[in-house]
């Protein structure tokens, strides 16, 4: 058993999955175009990194659902449109504030809800705060991380059981930013996230 990731072929996927400090964490990279032929059952966890094309993933909806039912852990990162390829997931797009730290009393109030979760025991909340692109409503889901906001607040990371396996889905997009050389908080988050994923 091992850890696999879908590889969408974008520069930020390559720079995160194939190069640098996180490259060794993945036993197998599956090009998105080959996902239909991949034996996913060989992998304990499958990562779908930021901005993987949601409509293309939707053509593999049944494969991904079967993977989780069979005991796999599917981990889905932000800007992938999970509502298009996962059952029971609703995405609400939030107007992105790219400048919050420049505003008077500006803050992006992203908070850990479940500190007991193995991914979140060690994470610094400051390393969850760059952009919020959306909030999630997941059938049977447990909220792990939340965006607190009077109008736009909601869950930004949710975990749910799916048959013998599970789903962890977030709207946070660390691979895009780390792999684009932008936003150091995303690299610090990946320094916690990738070892957690590799240890599943």
């Amino acid at each position: 058993m091992s850890i696999a990731s879908v590889d969408g072929g974008m520069a930020y996927h390559a720079r995160t999955l194939r190069e640098g400090r996180f490259a060794g964490a993945f036993d197998r990279l599956i090009p998105l175009r080959s996902l239909g032929e991949a034996d996913l059952g060989a992998h304990r966890a499958l990562l779908i990194p930021c901005r993987t094309h949601g409509e293309r993933l939707a053509t593999h909806r049944d494969v991904l659902a079967a993977y989780m039912r069979g005991g796999g852990t599917l981990v889905v990162l932000g800007e992938t449109r999970p509502d298009l390829f996962l059952d029971g997931v609703t995405l609400r797009v939030v107007p992105t504030n790219y400048w919050w730290w420049l505003e008077a009393e500006g803050r992006l109030d992203v908070r850990v809800v479940d500190r007991a979760h193995p991914l979140l025991r060690e994470v610094d909340e400051a390393d969850l705060r760059w952009h919020v692109h959306g909030t999630l409503d997941v059938e049977g889901g447990r909220e792990l991380v939340r965006y607190e906001d009077r109008e736009e607040g909601g869950a930004v990371m949710v975990e749910a059981s799916r048959g013998a396996g599970r789903l962890l889905v977030t709207t946070l997009d660390p691979v895009y930013h780390h792999g684009s050389g932008f936003m150091p908080a995303t690299t610090r988050f990946l320094e916690v996230f990738v070892p957690w994923l590799a240890g599943l």
């Binding site: 072929g9 974008m10 520069a11 090009p31």
Partner: peptide
């Protein structure tokens, strides 16, 4: 675009 599949 910056979002192309470079391998493709």
């Amino acid at each position: 675009s910056q979002h192309v599949d470079e391998r493709h």
